[in-house]
Structure formats: C-alpha cells, structure tokens
Amino acid sequence: MTSKAPIPYPLDEVEVVQATRTDLIERTWLNNKAEWGKDTNLDAYLDRERHLQSQDLTRDGGIKTWIVVPRQRANPGSDKDVDPETILSALETFERPAWIARKEDGQVHEVLAISIASVFTPEKFRSYGYGSFLMKAIWQKAKEMGAEVSYLYSDVGPNYYGRLGWTVHRSDELIIPVSTTFPETWVSPSSSSTNTVQDKDLEAILTRDAELLKAELVGRLNSNSNSNNGSMDKDTTVLAALVPEPNCVRWLHARASFVGERILNKADKITDLGVVSVEDQDQFVLWYHDLLHDQLTLIRTRFKADQPGQARALIERAVDEARKWGLSKVVAWNHDPLLEQWTGLQGVTRSSTLPSLGLCQEKDAGKKVEWILNNYYAWC
C-alpha cells in the first residue's frame, strides 16, 4: 500500500482570504481549466472567464473569489503577499436576491443568498482537507454577511456537501428530444401565438413573474395555516426561493454567446432568449443555449393548467429553437409536473449537478427547508 505524502501545509497554518489580485484570480481559472475547460483553447477559456466577470450579475463585487493559502505572517487575512503557486483550494461566490417565507410570522422576506461555484482543489493538494476547510469558512462568511440562504450544485454526489450544511434538493429533469411527436391528447396550439423574448423584454416578464411567485409563497403560507394536514410544519419548515431577475438570464446568455462565437466559431449570433404567449404574457419560456452539452435548457417557465394549448405553442417554439441550433434536445430542470402529463414524457433524476441548499442563520437551525422554483435560472 502506498502511504500518503505528508501534508504540504497543516490546517492550523492555513487561512481563507478573498483574492482581489488579477493574477491570483486568473491562477484559479488556470487551475480549474483541467476540470471545466479541458477541451477549450487556453486564451478563449481565460477570455470567457473575464467576460463572465464583467456582466451585470458579477461586476462590482457580485462575484468574489476565495482561496485557501498558507497563513500570511506579515498581512494575515490579505492576499497582498500570496504566492499563486500556493493556492491550495478555491471557489467563487455570487450574491443573489432570495425570498424566505416562515410559517411563524406569515411573511415573505427578501434576503441575501450566496451561491457557490467553481469549487476546485488542484490535484497535488487533494485529500488533505483543504476543500472542506474552505467550505466551512465560506459557510461562516455567508453568516457574517447576513445571508440567510446558501446554495450550490454538487458534482461529487449528495454526501460531501451535505455534511457541511448544503442539503440536496429535488434534482429531476425532463428531456424533450427534438424528434418528439407530441400526443394528440395535448391540445393543438393552432389558436395560440407567441412572440420571441429579447433582452429588452426581460424586465417586464420577470418583474411580473416575481410578483406572481411572491403571491404564490403567501398563498402557500395561508393554505398551510388553514389546514391541519398541510405539508408545512409551523416550527420546522421554511420556504426558500431565488428571485427571478434579468441579470441571471443575461449572464447565462453572455456565456452561451461567447461559446457560440469564440469557442465554436458559429456564424450566427444568439438573439432570442425565449418566447412569450401573445394572448397571456404571464405564460412564457426562457432558455439557455447550452451548445457544449448539445441541449437547449429551459431557464424558467410559467404555464397555466387550464391552457395547455398555450403551453404546447411555447414548448414547440423551444423545440424549433433547439433544432435551429443543431441541438438534439430541450431540457427542463425540476419541471412543471403538467409537462409530463401533456407531453407523454417522463422525467428522470439527475446523478450530477445536484442542487443543494442550506439555511445559514442560527434562527433557522434545525428547520427543514423547501426550495421553491428550483429551476436552472439559479445555476451559475
């Protein structure tokens, strides 16, 4: 049996600092390229990361990079003297608006959510506890920042982050191949018409969507308070939802456009961000062109149960968009259950990119949390 090499830096001699120096931030990208950019030209990969950090979602501190490094003797807590070669582990945090609804006060509160992404430890520094050390520190920093919710998407199964505070939630997806023939029982959309969604339309669509979501959360609170058999226990369940807002859609669109133009050298530009019903603008589909994974991913959808023809028109437009870009399928995360009934397709449970969420503050310790609207718009 091969013995484990001595730990490069004992855990009591390392610290977590925010990387503000450009060379340190870009070193974290170079490190994680082995995982998330292995088939991408180095210059294009770095340019993509710079591009994504310049979006409305991420500029002005919207994204932060955190690194584990040997403790800085002269400037503890600072990245001033950090050697890029000694970045032991790293991650990024995004600050997002969220809602929390608690049964005990019957209110929906707007709160800060911290999204965690790009968690990566260079291979030579793995198995020494640096990743767990970083995650524990970030959990504490999220609390200190006043965040009430933190979430991430796990590619290492449900247990690693689960023991650190982030519990796996629903992770279903519905796959609609572009070759799908929809059942005759799904009402014909012949009388329904749709318009494409452009950037200028996002504000109105998502402002209205957020209003409806907030009202739905209030309705959930009232419904459960009037029922002895409601699923929401008074003292132990919290409803949490990421607020739908344009910047998350724009960030994903910026990512897709860069991949199409710079990495895949597509001649056409991505212009359509989704479709909305002409007859009822509360019904819509927003999508993300995931060109590297051969799919059009539905970021956010809103349908009405009594208007299946509207839903069919919107989904058929999504299928058309996927086909236009040479993609083989349309994918919806944690989809509206009506889609299975309408399309005749069955959802599956993902084994990777598992949505994981936890409540950060002590007042919610021990409570269960239900993640409402756990759709792709939350991913980053």
Rank of each mutant, 00 (worst) to 15 (best):
V238F: 04
L239M: 11
Q198T: 12
D12H: 12
L202M: 10
Y153H: 12
T93K: 09
E26S: 10
L296R: 06
G37F: 02
A241G: 06
R170L: 10
P355L: 02
E49F: 11
L373K: 14
S356N: 01
Q107H: 09
L345V: 06
V218Y: 08
H51W: 13
L273T: 00
D294S: 12
V275H: 14
A44F: 01
G309W: 03
Q346A: 14
P8V: 04
Q307P: 00
D60Q: 15
G326N: 08
G146I: 01
K33D: 00
A311P: 01
E95A: 15
R73W: 04
V108N: 08
T65Q: 14
R50N: 13
D233Y: 11
I138H: 03
T2E: 13
L359M: 06
G165A: 03
G219W: 00
A204K: 15
A267D: 15
R317Y: 10
D23P: 04
G37V: 03
L357C: 06
R71S: 04
C248L: 13
Y130L: 03
V187E: 13
G37I: 02
D336Q: 06
P244L: 08
A311D: 01
W139K: 11
N31K: 08
R262Q: 15
T86V: 10
N375A: 14
W186V: 03
G77A: 06
L88P: 05
R126V: 04
S277M: 04
P76M: 07
V16Y: 02
A332Q: 07
T181P: 00
V330Q: 01
S188D: 12
N374H: 07
N159D: 11
T121W: 06
L338D: 13
L286K: 05
Y288S: 07
S3L: 12
P246M: 08
G274S: 06
T40W: 00
V69A: 11
